[in-house]
C-alpha cells in the first residue's frame, strides 16, 4: 500500500492508504473526520467539498494518493475554541441550514467563493454554488448567509 504525507487541518499526517481510496473516504474513515459528507456517487451534490491547497475541491473526485503533499482543510478546522468562522456564524444567523448534511460542503465552497470574490452579488453566489445541492432550504437563506459571511470576512 502506498504511504502518503500531507497536512490536514494544520496537523501533519502520514498514513498508508489503499491506492483506490477516495480522499473523502480517507478523511472520513481513516482520519475519522466525519464532518465531510457523502451525498451522491456522481460528484453532483458537493457535500464533500474540502479545501486542497486553498482550492475548493469535491473530495469524492480525487484519490487520497493524489493529495500526497497537499494541505487539506475540512469543516472541522474552521471554528476556533468555540468561536465560529465568520461564514459559519452567518449560516447560523441567517438560518441557512436545516438538516445540516450539505452544510459542511456548502460552507467550505462558500469560503472559497468569497476568497475569490470578496463582495459577491446575489447572482455571483447563486452561480458560484451551483455545484452544491441543498434539499431543505430553497437556497434563499444560504445566499443571504454567504453575502453576510463575505461582509464578516471583509470586516
Amino acid at each position: 500500500m502506498p504511504t502518503i504525507s500531507l497536512t490536514v487541518n494544520g496537523q501533519p499526517v502520514t498514513e498508508e492508504v489503499d491506492a483506490p481510496t477516495l480522499l473523502v473516504k480517507f478523511l472520513r474513515e481513516q482520519l475519522k473526520l466525519t464532518g465531510t459528507h457523502v451525498g451522491c456517487d456522481t460528484s453532483q451534490c458537493g457535500a464533500c467539498v474540502v479545501h486542497v491547497n486553498g482550492e475548493a475541491v469535491k473530495s469524492c473526485t480525487m484519490l487520497a494518493v493524489q493529495a500526497d503533499g497537499a494541505e487539506i482543510l475540512t469543516i472541522e478546522s474552521l471554528a476556533n475554541n468555540g468561536t465560529l468562522h465568520p461564514m459559519q456564524q452567518a449560516f447560523h444567523d441567517k438560518h441557512a441550514l436545516q438538516c445540516g448534511f450539505c452544510t459542511p460542503g456548502m460552507v467550505m465552497a462558500s469560503i472559497a467563493l468569497v476568497r475569490d470574490n470578496p463582495d459577491p452579488s446575489e447572482d455571483d453566489v447563486r452561480q458560484g454554488l451551483e455545484g452544491n445541492l441543498c434539499r431543505c432550504t430553497g437556497y434563499q437563506n444560504i445566499v443571504q448567509a454567504v453575502r453576510a459571511g463575505a461582509k464578516n470576512m471583509r470586516d
Partner: peptide, 14 residues
C-alpha cells in the same frame, strides 16, 4: 446549528 456547522453532527454513517 453549532454541532451541524462544525462537522460534529452525528449521522448514521458517522
Amino acid at each position: 446549528d453549532f454541532r451541524l456547522l462544525t462537522g460534529k453532527g452525528k449521522y448514521v454513517d458517522d
